[in-house]
Amino acid sequence: MKRELWLIVRRAVEYLPSEGAYLAAMRGLSRLGDGGGMTMKRSGAMVVLDGGHHVASLRRLPFYVRGLEYRAKRLTSDYSLDHIGFQPGDVVIDCGANVGDLLLSLDTTGVALRYVAFEPGRVEFECLRRNAGRFPQHTVELHREALGDRNGTATFHANSDDGDGSILEIAGTTEKVEVDIVRLDSLPFGRVKLLKLEAEGYEPEVLEGAGGILDRIEYIAADVGFERGLKHESTLPAVTNFLLAHGFSIVANAKGRLVLLFRNNSLR
């Protein structure tokens, strides 16, 4: 019964008109949702949770109201990380890192990793930079760049209200900025344990730009949901067909989200 009540309250607070009322409701929702009554404080364009974790948008707070530990478990499940045996020094590439929440999950492995993040969003990258500093056990490399099928520049369409953004035009765009875009295979990587691929519909182009190093990537966790462009198309067919043709197979899928984990058959 408690879960049903929590879901009802969560939907209701989304419509609160003032920022102060919204933050107060989210704090209450955190207590109701076993989040331990998280602290939530506005800091410029960001929101700071429990004195240290930075979030780029008020509207993303529902992802955190059950606590950072729950958020870590949720992402571990979404990206099927339990299927991967991480070893010290393994390289994890986070495409579309947003504020770096993947680090919350990776940290639960207890293994020191090399974490390489790509995030072109202005506020998101600043949150990522601050959040990454909380994980000194990992070797962290942060790039305020987009990944794609070419090297150069591109227009990044940002929706600051929802904390989303894409190289493709998206609904609700509040800001357009020119950002650097790079091919993943133009960068000096050896073997990569995991590529987490979440590019808001731009996943096929990112994979095209990774063509030269696909044989060195062991796992790819790809968000293939309905986020491509203004038509909100799924990238499931394009991503799956591309990776199957390049020697990958599907080993797991998330519950409740269109996220697939692929493994490179030649690296078994």
Rank of each mutant, 00 (worst) to 15 (best):
G165C: 07
V55Y: 01
E169V: 15
Y79F: 13
M38T: 09
I167H: 05
H83I: 01
R263N: 04
T153I: 10
W6K: 14
E208P: 03
A56L: 08
F189I: 00
C95N: 09
A171I: 13
Y64L: 07
L207E: 09
I93H: 03
L16V: 15
L29C: 02
Y22N: 10
V123N: 03
T240Q: 09
K196E: 12
I220M: 01
L75M: 14
T139Y: 01
E119W: 14
Y70F: 12
V91F: 01
G67T: 08
I181Q: 02
A72V: 13
L32R: 00
A117K: 05
A154W: 15
S166P: 08
R191V: 04
D78I: 14
D161V: 13
R71A: 11
H246C: 06
V224W: 03
M26C: 12
G190I: 01
G89Y: 12
R42N: 04
L258N: 12
S249A: 12
L195T: 10
V111T: 11
G212I: 06
E205L: 07
E218W: 02
F226N: 05
V182Q: 08
T139F: 00
R122E: 14
L184T: 00
L261I: 11
G133E: 10
H83W: 13
R122Y: 13
F262L: 15
E119I: 07
I217M: 03
S166W: 12
